[in-house]
Write a protein that binds this DNA or RNA. Structure first.
Length: 834
RNA sequence: UGGCCCGUGGUGGAAUUGGCAACACGUCUGGCUCUGGACCAGAAGAUUCCAGGUUCGAAUCCUGGCGGGCCAACCA
């Protein structure tokens, strides 16, 4: 992958880890699909990330089948997944891994959890467990079996494993916290009893681990360093970490693994490297579904012809549609990765496809919707084989294994595209019309002399004359026709079936406004055309991607169709298989700026019509008389007021802050929210620092500095080494002008991290404020000289660039300069220097 | 009166961690062309969800509000 100056947030984390020498700088990621369906374009994004991140940092990626649910999985899916990833162009580390290969070590690990008292066997029914779990609003209740002895748990769990109980009789649960606000932590299930046949382990196991238990431990077993998954697993991360921290793996347990290196039975104590989970937003594509579970019903109910139906967003479908793998990779690269919900336009995918195909797809002629043209001044039984280049001049490096030209037949009977003729041409129309001349691509100029219609008034034939002097596309007299159109000989072309695919769903968001997303299926997503194509294609390799000139990119489908009607033929189509015709899938149309495709961005049009002036949120309701918080009210303030009503000291401080210290009500409110907060503030101002300034620092900057995270994943939330007295001293230093505000900011982060006395640090490091006008002016001049372009733009009126120069000067003086002074001097210097 | 996460042009997203709101797709001009494609040149499009606050300076920090997503499967 090319070096980018910008790193997405995942790569930033990995880059930091590598730089800090975590795991000795090793990176191992994993792609863990469940083999219960085909991979789709959404997975492509995850695959590109998992494999791409590792590759960027010299790491590797394992492919792991997350096959812990025997009832949904199938070896056919395993095969499809491997095929699709390989096709996409990625190579996984070693053999394919299977979670099912880890069933034994997982079980051993679980046994230890039971021994250590971190897991218990619960014998409640499924619905009872659900009931005991409580809701998001109410805490759960412990199961009556929660306090079984370790011995009993051990014996029961072993019996579960031995197959002594029927399905549903017991489960193994982690013993965590039934009242956790995170539902995932309310004693999550680790194992269920399921007497089911697993496609790999057969009937060896009557119990199967759940995702949360299996996944993190599998990461540990494989030595994964960065475990990337989608946003909906954010709540699971706390559990992931809990499991990682509470297991005690030993070499013996993972020794039974295929490919294990062997080696004793000593305790590993913990997983090393310790895997960490990071989440990113899944990629949604408009007019498309990216969910294996939603795609399955389409396959099952016959809405599509299979997982590889070219309308499907599956990699297999895209492949059959003719989308090259590098286009998908380019697309994933282009949209990148983030944490915000999104819906990418399919236009972006189409762009990537055209970009990939344009330089390498040979151009051929194919008429999709034929209109008969008779050349009246050409011999009826004549035929000319014209030499035509496969690539236009602007394709600089056509594929070397493809010939430069082919021959195409010209005869008295031709087909042109019905849309390339207009009896009454609109203005700007550059194609054929009565009396007009156009160029046939790679052929002659023709002029339309006569329009033949059927009884219904529909045009059925054009009678034209050609100019024999224009062979090769130009006329000796130098005249230029208004346009160039594609065509095909009716006497010597091949009949072809063309399948045009439109989006599978009618609306950008298939889940919008319906209970069943299938109600949003586009009934016209497939259009089949009887077309004619130049005969050269019959001899080409079957998987060739073409550009049909002026229409789009197409690929030959593996299917052939028997001829439904005999095409006008004199045997020139002899290369085609007798009695059959070729089938082509349209991969994507050409970009079309003439016929503005109405369907292209309908959602844009619709929103602008439906929501003309809709502004932000709803109008706040007036407060209700019950005093209950209503929308728009400051509920935090209400809560604090209520607490103060019941606590005299709090209320006293609240009032004193306002009356004696002159703080605003809002500031006093925040400061008097808790005894700890009041105490901290009182101690900070005890040294004589300006109360108002201290309050502002405390409320704004200190909170900001404390919430800033350290190196990814290692943040110790709420931990601060800042002493109140130090804050008071710091504020005093700034207020008295001893140090600059910016130095104060820097110092604050250091105090929060490491503690200390600001006065000492300032003395020791000579951080005193720089107010020497001459010094600052020197620096400013230097900065201006170094940035002539910006200086010019400032003088041209871009006033906000002053901030840029202030920043540069501050940097040059290590933040010691007085910023107001700097701004002053910078603006002065900028103006005088002109 | 739950927890967690997320709001930057139409779309996806940058902003070197408080100092010029990048880039790409799309749109619109103009040029070139034997493809109304490609290519070349240019333009338009953003009070960074809102309101306050801190700061010389805020997309970024603080407070509150609004909006969206996920979580109560013996699925993953």
């Amino acid at each position: 992958m090319s070096e980018k100056e910008h790193l997405d947030f995942i790569r930033q984390i990995v880059a930091d880890d590598v730089a800090s020498g975590k795991h000795d700088g090793r990176v191992l990621t994993r792609f863990p699909p469940e083999p219960n369906g085909f991979l789709h374009i959404g997975h492509a994004s995850a695959i590109c990330l998992d494999f791409g991140v590792a590759a960027d940092y010299g790491g590797r990626t394992t492919l792991r089948m997350d096959d812990t649910n025997p009832t949904t999985e199938d070896p056919a899916y395993v095969e499809a997944i491997e095929r699709d990833i390989a096709w996409l162009g990625f190579e996984w580390e070693g053999d394919v891994r299977y979670a099912s290969d880890y069933f034994e070590p997982l079980y051993q690990l679980a046994l230890r959890m039971v021994e250590d008292g971190f897991a218990y066997v619960d014998s409640l029914s499924e619905s009872e467990i659900r009931d005991h779990r409580g809701s998001v609003r109410e805490p759960g209740r412990p199961s009556p079996y929660r306090d079984r002895s370790i011995e009993e748990n051990l014996q029961l769990f072993r019996a579960m494993r031995a197959g002594e109980f029927p399905d549903g009789a017991h489960v193994l649960r982690a013993k965590i916290d039934l009242s956790a606000s995170n539902m995932k932590m309310r004693d999550p299930l680790m194992y269920r009893i399921r007497h089911a046949h697993h496609y790999r382990t057969g009937d060896a196991w009557p119990i199967y681990p759940f995702y949360d238990w299996a996944h993190g431990q599998s990461d540990g077993i494989e030595g994964i360093t960065h475990s990337l998954c989608t946003l909906e697993f954010q709540d699971n991360r706390e559990l992931y970490d809990w499991f990682i921290e509470h297991t005690r793996p030993s070499v013996a347990q993972i020794d039974s693994l295929p490919g294990a290196e062997g080696g004793g039975s000593e305790d590993l104590g913990s997983w090393d490297p310790r895997p960490r989970q990071y989440e990113f937003a899944r990629r949604n594509l408009d007019y498309t579904i990216v969910s294996k579970r939603k795609l399955l019903p389409l396959v099952e109910d016959g809405s599509v012809s299979g997982w590889d139906d070219p309308r499907m967003s599956t990699l297999a479908g895209l492949r059959r549609r003719g989308v090259p793998p590098d286009a998908i990779r380019a697309f994933c690269d282009q949209v990148g990765i983030g944490k915000a919900d999104n819906r990418v336009s399919v236009g972006t995918l189409e762009w990537a496809i055209r970009e990939a195909l344009n330089p390498r797809a040979p151009r051929v002629l194919c008429v999709l919707d034929p209109l008969k043209v008779t050349i009246t001044n050409y011999p009826d039984d004549g035929i000319d084989w014209l030499e035509a280049p496969y690539f236009p001049r602007d394709v600089k490096a056509p594929p070397e294994d493809w010939p430069a030209t082919r021959r195409i037949p010209f005869s008295a009977n031709l087909y042109i595209e019905r849309s390339d003729f207009a009896e009454e041409p609109p203005s700007g129309f550059k194609r054929l019309a009565p009396g007009r001349e156009v160029r046939l691509r790679h052929g002659f100029f023709i002029t339309c002399d006569e329009v033949v219609k059927d009884g219904g008034g529909e045009v059925v034939e054009l009678r034209c004359t050609y100019d024999p002097a224009t062979s090769g596309g130009s006329s000796p007299d130098g005249r230029k026709p208004s346009g160039t159109i594609h065509w095909v000989s009716a006497d010597a072309s091949l009949p072809a079936e063309i399948r045009l695919y439109d989006r599978l769903f009618k609306v950008a968001d298939p889940y919008e406004g319906v209970e069943d997303f299938r109600d949003n299926l586009n009934p016209n997503s497939l259009e089949i055309l009887d077309a004619f194509i130049e005969p050269s294609v019959a001899e080409d390799p079957p998987d060739t991607s073409y550009q049909f000139e002026r229409t789009g990119y197409f690929i030959r489908d593996r299917a052939t169709r028997s001829v439904s009607k005999v095409a006008g033929s004199n045997g020139a189509g002899a290369h085609a298989e007798a009695g059959s015709r070729l089938v082509f899938n349209r991969t994507v149309s050409l970009r079309n700026t003439w016929e503005t495709t109405v369907y292209l961005e309908p959602d844009v049009a619709i929103t602008s019509v439906l929501e003309p002036g809709v502004t932000v949120g709803p109008v706040p309701e007036p407060a209700s008389e019950t005093g209950e918080p209503t929308i728009g009210e400051d509920t935090g303030r209400l809560a604090r007021d209520r607490i103060r009503e019941e606590s005299l000291p709090l209320q006293t401080s609240f009032e004193r802050f306002q009356r004696e210290l002159g703080l605003t009500e809002e500031v006093a409110d925040l400061l008097s929210a808790s005894p700890a907060s009041i105490d901290f503030y009182e101690r900070a101002i005890a040294g004589g620092a300006n109360p108002e300034a201290v309050a502002n620092w405390l409320l704004n900057k200190v909170r900001g500095a404390e919430s800033k995270e350290g190196p990814a994943g290692t943040r110790a939330a709420g931990e601060s080494s800042l002493e109140p007295e130090a804050l008071g001293a710091l504020v005093d230093l700034v207020e008295s002008g001893t140090i600059s505000v910016t130095t104060g900011n820097d110092l604050l982060s250091r105090l929060v991290a490491d503690g200390g006395d600001p006065r000492e640090i300032v003395d020791r490091e000579a951080l005193g404020r720089l107010v020497d006008r001459a010094r600052i002016r020197d620096v400013a001049h230097q900065v201006i000289a170094d940035h002539p372009e910006e200086a010019g733009r400032f003088r041209a009126g871009q006033a906000k660039l002053a901030g840029f120069f202030v920043g540069q000067v501050m940097r040059a003086t290590e933040n010691r300069a007085d910023a107001s002074l700097v701004r002053n001097i910078v603006e002065e210097s900028l103006n005088e220097a002109s």
